[in-house]
């Protein structure tokens, strides 16, 4: 098992994070920046979930190890592996990252909405959502506000 196979998920997470970061840094458009931020956030979610995956595991919904489903899962795995890492005869993936990311996703969309609402208000005040044009508009406004010499 080579290094790239065991760390592939993390490489993808870093690539997605870079894509999000690049959008946030390079784009002047406020809405595009919010999309970049969403991408960035999603890469964090991917990282957590990748971390919580256990080889041969199943979703963290308690199963009966003697039931049909539990037996079918156990049949695919080495009994010693199940004995060491399983809980009551079934190997589960780690539920903790799932809990954290589940709430983070819903909070993420709520904060995304706040960011987009700010962009809408910026557009109403400045007539644009491009940060360069916003700078230009506020510069002109500042010059007009100065008393003529």
């Amino acid at each position: 098992m080579s290094w790239i196979a065991t760390h592939f998920n993390y490489v993808v997470v870093v690539i997605l994070m870079m894509a999000g970061l690049f959008i946030v840094f390079s784009s002047g458009n406020l809405i595009k920046r919010m999309i970049g931020l969403a991408l960035f956030q999603s890469s964090t979610a991917l990282f957590y979930i990748s971390f919580g995956k256990v080889s041969g595991g199943t979703a963290a919904i308690t199963l009966d190890a003697q039931g049909a489903e539990g037996q079918a899962l156990a049949a695919q795995l080495d009994p010693a592996y199940v004995a060491q890492f399983g809980v009551e005869g079934v190997v589960y993936s780690n539920p903790l990252p799932h809990v954290l990311i589940l709430t983070a996703i819903v909070v993420g969309v709520a904060t995304l909405a706040v960011g987009l609402a700010i962009a809408v208000r910026v557009r109403e005040s400045y007539g644009t959502v491009e940060s360069d044009e916003i700078d230009a508009v506020s510069r002109v406004a500042a010059e007009q506000a100065e008393p003529a010499p």
Partner: peptide
């Protein structure tokens, strides 16, 4: 990734 709850939310 065995995360049906998160998949649902996403």
């Amino acid at each position: 990734m065995d995360a049906p709850d998160v998949a649902f939310t996403e």
